[in-house]
Amino acid sequence: MTVQKQGTDELLGLDKFTVDEENAHIVLDKTACAVCNDKPCLVVCPAGLYKLNDKGEILFDYAGCLECGTCRIMCHQLKQWKYPTGTFGVSFRFG
């Protein structure tokens, strides 16, 4: 039997995300991000939601958030981190 490894995109595609477009549950302090040298968010997010653009600025989209809280612990540049409201957020389909 051959076991095939799946990449992050394939695994995240199994989950269902209901996004609250009007209330972001994670808000970055972009000014603080600009002077942050370590930028741990780029490596600790299991969903890979934090990226650098061509200008070296942090780009972030909370729509695919797994709600694990890793960025909340590792990043000191967050203005806000809370769980999504009510029926919004991630629904894991396969554990």
Rank of each mutant, 00 (worst) to 15 (best):
L52N: 04
C45P: 03
N23V: 08
Q6Y: 11
E21F: 14
T85H: 08
L28K: 09
I26D: 00
Q4H: 12
A63H: 13
L14V: 12
D61N: 15
Y83E: 12
S91A: 15
K82L: 04
I58Q: 06
C75D: 02
R72L: 12
T85V: 11
A47M: 04
G86K: 11
G7E: 10
M1D: 15
L11Q: 10
A63E: 15
L42H: 05
N37H: 09
C41N: 02
D15S: 10
V35Q: 12
C75V: 00
R93I: 12
K79S: 05
E67D: 08
T31N: 14
H76A: 09
W81I: 01
D20V: 02
T31R: 13
L66I: 09
V27G: 02
L28H: 05
K5H: 11
L14F: 06
A24T: 03
L14A: 11
T70H: 08
D54L: 08
P40T: 06
T85A: 14
C75P: 00
G69V: 10
G86N: 12
F92D: 01
C68T: 06
D20S: 04
P84E: 06
T2G: 14
T87F: 14
L42D: 09
P84D: 04
D61E: 10
G69W: 01
E67A: 06
K39V: 11
G95M: 12
C41R: 01
P46H: 04
G7W: 04
G56S: 09
T31V: 15
T70P: 00
T2P: 15
C75Q: 01
L66M: 12
E57L: 12
C75I: 01
K55Y: 14
C75K: 00
Y83M: 14
D29I: 02
A32T: 13
D61Q: 05
D54Q: 06
G69P: 03
L42P: 05
D29V: 02
Q4R: 15
D9G: 09
K51D: 05
F17I: 09
K39I: 08
N37D: 15
F17C: 09
D15P: 00
C36R: 11
G7K: 03
Q4E: 14
F92E: 07
A47D: 07
I58F: 12
L14P: 00
D38G: 03
G13Q: 07
C45S: 04
C36T: 07
E57C: 01
D54H: 00
C45A: 02
E21R: 15
L12K: 08
L49K: 04
H25D: 02
R72F: 15
Q6L: 15
L78C: 00
V43S: 13
V3G: 10
G95D: 07
I73M: 11
P40E: 02
K55C: 03
K39L: 14
V35H: 02
H76K: 07
G69L: 10
V44F: 03
Q80V: 09
A47E: 07
H25W: 07
A32W: 00
G69Q: 07
S91C: 03
W81F: 14
L14H: 02
V3W: 09
N37K: 12
E22R: 11
N37T: 13
C71N: 00
C71L: 01
E67S: 06
T8W: 08
R72C: 12
D61K: 05
G86S: 12
C36W: 06
P84Q: 03
F94C: 06
C41A: 05
C36P: 14
